[in-house]
Simulated scan of single mutants.
Amino acid sequence: MQDGRHAGEGETQRGVLTERGGDATDTSDAADTPACELHGEELVLGYPSTDEPVVQCDTIVVPAGEITALVGPNGSGKSTLLRALSNQLSPEGGQVLLDGTDVQTLGTKTLARKLGLLSQEHDSPRSLTVEELAYHGRYPHRGMFESLSPDDHEAVERALSLAGVARLRDREMGDLSGGQKQLAWIAMVLAQETDVLLLDEPTTYLDLHHQLRVMEVVRSLNRERDVTVAVVLHDIGQAARFADNLIAMKDGEPYDWGPPREVVSEELLEDVFRVEASVDAASPTGPHISPHRALDR
């Protein structure tokens, strides 16, 4: 781990993250915290095409019932880490625990009832309607030959309403704008009714209106249903506004972790993002960043 702003001499990455996020093995508050926690330990992540690990991480915690944003420059390992947390990528070393259970030991449907993932790459037949797409999110709750239940209908209605696409239910996906499509996909993931939601760059390529709409939906879901959220974001200012915690990645390792007002600093922006900027930590909506110029390596 890079020596982050909060890491004292001799502190390990495990010590820094455990101090803030709580020890993943401490269940003293379990009765008061029904939401799920994701915890990665001793992770080594890579791909067949890479000789060296893409991500190495002693300990990473996505606290139960909170929004955690993964931020960092391109190639820093954010999406790779999210793929491992969602069991889309098997670690070369270490494990990912969902409330103490290794995610690789959970069956596909069991995991899908607990954890939902919206990846960067998703596609559907253009003729599929928004409502039909949302019903696809109910597959973990149904047997192969089971018909739709009242619970399925209620879940889809809630998802369409929360995502703000109920009025688009009969529209075909091929007729929607980019922002509308993204909200439709979010409705599908919401219909899954999971305890944990992972989102990989859900606001990329969207205009400002739809960026804010997506993040407001995520925050509403977290606040109203106590869903644990981990989201990869490029915009650190947006992350600082909507997230309870930030994990700043640099060169495949967590650089710093904690509440935005503690993590976002001029030093971090320079070291991680190579940007000279001013930070107003007292801004009521979270640390406000004013970038000045890009820095050379």
Rank of each mutant, 00 (worst) to 15 (best):
D3C: 01
D3M: 09
R167S: 14
E157G: 09
R142V: 00
L43C: 02
L106M: 15
E276C: 01
G22P: 10
S127T: 14
N222L: 10
L176E: 03
L98Q: 03
S278K: 10
G116Q: 05
L168V: 02
Q56A: 08
R171N: 13
L168H: 08
E146F: 12
S177P: 00
F242G: 03
T59D: 14
T33E: 15
R261C: 04
V272G: 03
L70W: 08
V71N: 04
E92M: 14
G93Q: 12
D296M: 10
S220W: 09
G252T: 05
T108K: 12
Q211C: 08
L148I: 04
S127R: 12
L197K: 05
T33G: 06
G77H: 02
E19P: 00
L115C: 05
A239E: 05
G174E: 04
R20V: 15
S79A: 10
G258K: 09
L295V: 12
L85F: 13
E253H: 12
M144N: 11
K181E: 01
V214R: 00
E132Y: 11
V229S: 01
R293M: 14
R241C: 01
R297Q: 12
S278N: 10
E146D: 14
S127C: 09
A159P: 02
D32V: 04
S124Q: 11
G75F: 04
I247T: 14
L111S: 09
S278Y: 09
L168M: 12
D235Q: 09
A281T: 13
E37Q: 15
E224W: 12
Q104I: 03
A24V: 10
T105W: 03
V227R: 04
S265K: 04
R83W: 07
L162S: 08
T228P: 03
F273T: 08
D175I: 01
A282N: 14
K109D: 15
D26I: 05
E270F: 03
G46L: 10
E267Q: 10
P125D: 13
L17A: 07
L269A: 04
R167P: 00
T33P: 03
A31Q: 03
V165N: 04
V263Y: 11
T27L: 15
A84W: 05
G174T: 06
A294E: 15
A163Y: 02
P125G: 12
T59G: 00
W185R: 00
Q95S: 15
T68P: 05
V263H: 11
T108R: 15
L268Y: 01
L85S: 05
L111C: 09
D99W: 03
S76E: 00
S127G: 05
T33A: 14
G22D: 11
D280A: 08
D195C: 10
A243D: 06
Q120E: 15
H234N: 09
D170R: 11
R83L: 12
D175M: 10
